[in-house]
Amino acid sequence: MTPPPPEKRKSGNPARQAHIDETVKQQRERRRQEKLAEYNRQLAKRRRSRLTWWVVGSAAAVVVVAIVVASVVLTPRPVSYGAFDSTGATIEGVETFDNVTQHVDGTVDYPQDPPAGGPHNPVWLNCGVYSEPVPNENAVHSMEHGAVWVTIDPDRISDDQLRTLTAKLPSTYVVVSPYPGLRSPLVLSAWNAQLALDSVDDPRIPQFLEEYWRSQNVPEPNALCTGGVDGPGRL
C-alpha cells in the first residue's frame, strides 16, 4: 500500500487514514460493500451450519443403526445341534410308549416285544455285548437308567454286520443281545421308545442314539449301567 502524503496524515493506522481520505460517495459505497460482505458471511455461515447438521446427523444415524444391528447380530444364537437331543425329535419309524416304572420280582408280560420300559427286576443288567439272550426284566431296568438296548436276530445279522453295528455304538449305556423271534433283523429300544430296522447301515441308528441314549426323560437318568448283574454270554 502506498503511504499517503505526509502533510495529510491524521492517523497512524493506514486503514483509518484511508477512511479519512474517502469522499462521501466512497464512504457509502464502502458501507454498502461491508453490508453485502456481512450478508454473504451470514449466508455462508448458515449454509455451513446446515451442512454440519446433515453430516453430524447422518453420522449419528449410521452409528445408531450400526449399534442396533450389532446388538441383534451379536446376540448368541440358541444352541442347536439338530433336533436329536432328547427333546422329542421325530425320527421316522420310532414308536413311543407310556410304560410306568416299578420294581417287581419274577417275569413280566411286556406289551412291547422286545420290551421298551415297564415294571422290572430290582437289579439292572450290566451294559455290554452279549452272545446269548438276556433276561427282559433286568434289561428293562438298564433302559430305566438311560441305556439303549440293541436286539438283533442272529439269523439275519451276520457276525460282520454285528461288528459294523457295535463299532457305531457308544462304549457305555448300551446292551447288545440276540433276541429270539425278533420281528425285524434289528430293533433299537430305549425307555418308552423303539425303532425296528432292517440294516446295520441305517442312518437312523445315530439319530436314535442322539435322541434317546442317556436321555434325561428316563426315570433314573445318570444311574450307572455297571455294578448290576451280568446275563449269560457277556463278551
Partner: peptide, 20 residues
Amino acid sequence: QRGEMYDWLVQWGVPQSGRL
C-alpha cells in the same frame, strides 16, 4: 460331578452322545 456335567448338556440342548 458327572451329574452336573450331564445337566450342562441338558441345559445346552446337545446330545449326551459324541465321539470320544
